[in-house]
Amino acid sequence: MTMYAALLRGINVGGSKKVPMAELRTLLESLGYDSVATYLQSGNAVFGTDHGDEDSLAAELEQAIEKQFGFAVSVLVRDHAYLKAVREACPFPAAELEAKQLHVTYFSAPVDAERFATVDPAAFAPEEFRLGDREMYLYAPDGLGRSKLAVALSKPRLLKGVVATTRNWNTVVKLEELTGV
Rank of each mutant, 00 (worst) to 15 (best):
A22T: 12
A22R: 12
E23A: 13
E23K: 11
S30Q: 15
G32H: 04
Y33V: 00
D34P: 01
S35L: 07
S35V: 01
A37Q: 14
T38V: 03
L40Q: 14
Q41H: 06
N44T: 09
N44L: 05
A45L: 10
V46E: 02
F47Q: 02
F47T: 07
T49W: 00
H51K: 14
E54R: 12
E54S: 15
S56C: 10
S56E: 11
E62F: 00
Q63R: 14
Q63P: 01
I65E: 09
Q68A: 15
F69E: 12
G70K: 02
V75F: 01
A81K: 08
Y82M: 06
K84E: 15
K84W: 01
V86T: 12
R87S: 04
E88I: 06
E88C: 07
A89I: 05
P91H: 10
P93I: 13
P93A: 12
P93C: 09
A95G: 13
A95S: 15
L97W: 09
E98W: 05
A99N: 14
Q101P: 01
H103M: 11
T105K: 03
Y106S: 12
A109K: 15
P110E: 13
P110Y: 01
D112F: 00
D112G: 15
E114G: 14
E114L: 12
R115K: 09
R115G: 05
A122H: 05
F124R: 07
P126H: 12
E128N: 09
L131N: 05
L131I: 07
D133K: 13
R134T: 13
R134V: 05
M136R: 13
Y137C: 08
P141L: 09
D142K: 12
D142Y: 02
L144Y: 15
R146L: 09
R146Q: 11
K148D: 05
L149F: 05
A150F: 09
V151R: 11
V151H: 06
A152V: 07
S154H: 07
L158M: 05
L158D: 03
V162I: 15
V162G: 09
V163T: 15
V163Q: 08
A164Q: 05
A164K: 00
R167N: 01
